[in-house]
Write a protein that binds this DNA or RNA. Structure first.
Lengths: 106, 106
DNA sequence: TATATTTGCAACCGAACGGTTTCTTAAATT
DNA sequence: AATTTAAGAAACCGTTCGGTTGCAAATATA
């Protein structure tokens, strides 16, 4: 069973859950109210997100508040880094080109 | 059939393909040589990546060079933006705390 | 022209995915 | 103590995924 952060964010429902939890910790029931699905389905998503440590459960009485582990999100950012270098380079090249074009002709 | 960039990067083989192509455009055969799998499997990944416009095929004789559409990668960066705001805020708070601790006691 | 090479496409297969329904456990409320 | 509420666990179901094998099409080479 593959279980990493990239697989975790592949599902649109899970991305929506992450976005909601990012604003404030929420219970499975509260989350389910935002979706057109059963609480159990949400629970399954929460389990997956918990397993790859993207969210953390916090028991409060009989309720469980799930909160985002924002640091884990940085792993995606870290992976993107290698490509950011490339698109920044391309932007610089474009910038150079534009600057060159602007220069008065010899 | 769901086909978006998040699903595209969910698979580790596809992430590896993206990373290779980022450096230089490559053919399916050349790519397959880097993996312990058949060319057809790589071709399937390339198809998925092409469908969500993360890569672009360029025919050259009987070979097809696939090259990365770096701009598409920015979509991930864009999605991350909402969370980057949060982790930068948390960092600022930590920074403020540390600065406060450093201040001499009254 | 015959042959080899590069590639895509279709059919198939087992495993994983995303969902539902049903059941159990535990805490809160009456 | 009985009932309600919140949540997880297990079993099941149809679909998708990632891979394979086999085949057809098109280009290059002999």
């Amino acid at each position: 069973m593959r279980r990493d952060i990239f697989q975790a964010i592949a599902d649109p429902s899970r991305r929506a859950i992450i976005a909601l939890i990012a604003l404030q910790a929420m219970t499975p029931n509260a989350l389910a109210a935002h979706f057109d699905t059963t609480r159990q389905a949400v629970s399954k998503h929460l389990r997956i997100l918990t397993e790859c440590e993207l969210i953390k459960p916090e028991q409060r009485g009989r309720e469980i508040y799930y909160q985002l582990e924002i640091n884990k999100m940085k792993e995606i950012d870290k992976w993107l880094e290698q490509f950011r270098k490339i698109w920044e380079k391309r932007f610089d090249q474009l910038d150079t080109l534009l600057t060159t074009l602007k220069k008065p002709k010899k």
